[in-house]
Simulated scan of single mutants.
Amino acid sequence: MANRQDLDSSEFEPLKNLSARVGADPLLVQAAGGNTSLKENGTLWIKASGTWLMNAERDEIFVPVRLAPLLQAVTDIDPAAEKAEAFVVAELNPGGLRPSIETTVHALMPQRVVVHVHCVETISLAVQANAEAVIGERLKGLDWTFVPYCRPGLPLARAIAERRRPGTDILVLGNHGLVVAAETVAEAETLLGRVCGLLARTPRKAPAADTDALLRLAAGSDYRLPAQPEAHAAATDLASCRMAAAGTLYPDHVIFLGEGSVIAAPGDTAVAVAAKASAESRAAPVEILFPGKGVLVRRDANAGAEALARCLADVTARIDGQAALRYLSAQDAHQLINWDAEKYRQELTRRMGAALQ
């Protein structure tokens, strides 16, 4: 069985380096999203739930999982495969880390190195109603598989098992992201760059935010300007704002910002929007979009929420305003919000946000 010393002398250091670089790129990974893994001597070393890839070189973020019994559990549709905690190699996991909620995705790919990202270029195509056809035109000649949206965890693993062909090294996950796999970290990085390049488009240029107006709209409220100014484009670009108003496009939006997007009505202030939510027995929205002006976020918005506020702008800016989109259903959102694995990840993100403040 592999141990950490063995891994340090093989592909583990390159994996940590790639993970940190990928995790620092907001067009590839946002907050605690995305994960990487390495298979070594029957053990799957996978990014732990709630940890951030950008910290891969600084912190111990990888947890060892016994591969063979996990794969058998997926085949048997055993609920234990859902969290994969039952397959952790405890003696090599002194920090008590929990495996990523997408551990089964990595296990099902037979290649040694697997990289899963929430690439905005990929998501902006994977949310379209004709995603498989559109992406197929761009990935001609590559061995790839499209997997329609399923909740991460065992449902997604089963869908991948049913659709993936032998030799497939690229998965495009509907309304979710991208997975690439290879035998070495260098090969995985090359493939990641190639696929992202083929899927890339020039984003629409959004008008600048009206920060003076936003500050007036925030007066007397628990709202502030976002830490990442790029987030404003989701509201200042009216095509993006219309897309956001229609529903939720991908899972992490639900987890960090809530279901859908809250669009302020003409004349609304942040105080008024929060009051409406309270009157309807809803929590005050984490983010409010003011069409043509920009966005405000709640003062207690954590680093994860900030990252996903920007992600909304980055994704929608790359979608043709006339494209037919597939949004997550209310049931999809309910499954995510009430899923224990996601509650755990949210709590870790909340703690990290508090530590950064």
Rank of each mutant, 00 (worst) to 15 (best):
P229E: 14
V262M: 09
T248K: 11
A239R: 12
Y250W: 14
S240G: 10
Y223L: 05
C241H: 11
A246H: 11
L238P: 00
T248E: 09
M243A: 10
R224D: 05
I255D: 00
A265Y: 01
A235Q: 03
G258Q: 08
T248L: 09
V262F: 03
G247M: 08
L257K: 08
G220C: 07
L257W: 02
E230C: 03
A246T: 07
G247P: 04
H253Y: 13
F256C: 08
A234G: 09
H253D: 06
L238H: 11
P226E: 10
A227W: 01
E259L: 00
H253F: 06
G247D: 09
D268H: 03
A244K: 05
G260F: 02
D252R: 11
S221L: 06
M243G: 06
G267F: 01
G258M: 08
A219T: 10
D252F: 10
A239T: 12
A218N: 04
G258A: 07
G267P: 01
L225K: 12
Y223T: 08
G258H: 12
A239N: 13
T236Q: 06
H232W: 01
I255Y: 06
A239H: 08
A265G: 02
I263R: 12
L225P: 03
A264I: 02
A231F: 04
H253V: 13
A219P: 00
A235T: 05
E230P: 00
L257E: 04
A264V: 03
D237K: 07
P251W: 02
L257R: 13
V254S: 14
A233E: 13
T248V: 03
D252P: 10
P266W: 07
S240R: 10
P251Y: 13
T236P: 04
A219H: 12
A218R: 04
A231S: 15
Y223A: 09
R224M: 08
Y223G: 07
P229G: 10
S261F: 04
A239V: 10
G247H: 10
R242C: 06
H232Q: 11
D252K: 12
V262N: 08
A264F: 05
G258E: 03
R242F: 00
G247Q: 09
A245E: 13
Y223M: 02
A218W: 02
L217N: 10
S240K: 08
T269I: 01
G220I: 00
A245D: 03
